[in-house]
Nucleic acid binder design. Structure first.
Length: 206
DNA sequence: ATACCGATTAACT
DNA sequence: GTTAATCGGTATA
């Protein structure tokens, strides 16, 4: 039985959100809601570097009821609704008053596949389960009521099960859907496992 | 109060 | 490759 270690507060409360973003690739995102446990390995992430990052909701120090969570401690969930339909799950990093966050964009389903299929309204397992940020939340049962939830608690957390991808399997690229961010849209803040089926976008070639 | 828009997805042509 | 769906957040008055 492999041992699973929940990531500690110190993992999240560090300065370099981009680096943390890369480190999250290969970790396991777990939700345990209403006694039902579902999990998946993170294969795609994007870093949002707070006030200095035009693509971030907290750009320029913007602070509203929605983004308030990002100004809290590292190790907190920031969930919001996009396009009125999709719940996007983010991990808040850095300490108080520095609104860094990491969007989880893709997971490879592990435990509770049946439940995830049901939540996603799918009949059979395929690559779209857990592929793309909206689908990640749907599969894991995360929605906006979970914003502000501590990742050190029992409901939602990220763990290290000892597995890791080889450095060469992880690639950096520009973030998705942030064209409005000008030059910040070009920053290589997106990390993904090369050619992995549960990474959004076209299959990457080597 | 009202108006515009989005860290997307799925279903089209 | 293109586009409709859909509604809370944010800005503006």
């Amino acid at each position: 039985m492999h041992r699973i270690k929940k990531l500690p507060r110190t993992f999240y409360e560090r300065e370099d959100v981009v680096n943390i973003s890369r480190e999250l690739i290969g970790k396991v995102l777990v939700t345990e809601l209403d006694g039902v446990r579902t999990s998946g390995r993170i294969v795609e992430t994007e870093a949002y570097a707070g006030h200095g990052d035009k693509a971030s909701h907290a750009y320029g120090g913007r602070r509203t009821a929605r983004t308030e969570v990002m100004y809290g401690r590292g190790g907190t969930a920031y969930v919001y609704l996009c396009y009125g339909i999709h719940h996007l799950f983010n991990v808040v990093t850095h300490g108080r008053d520095t609104p860094h966050a990491i969007l989880i964009r893709g997971i490879e389903p592990m435990e509770g596949v049946e439940v995830m299929l049901e939540r996603s309204g799918k009949k059979v397992f395929d690559r779209t389960l857990g592929r793309g940020p909206g689908n990640v939340s749907k599969a894991l049962g995360i929605d906006t009521v979970h914003t502000g939830t501590s990742l050190l608690g029992a409901e939602i957390y990220i763990a290290d099960d000892g597995f890791s991808f080889a450095p060469g399997e992880i690639e950096a690229s520009a973030r998705i859907g942030v064209d409005y961010a000008g030059k910040d849209a070009l920053l290589p803040y997106r990390f993904s496992v090369k050619g992995h089926a549960h990474v959004s976008g076209k299959p990457s070639r080597t």
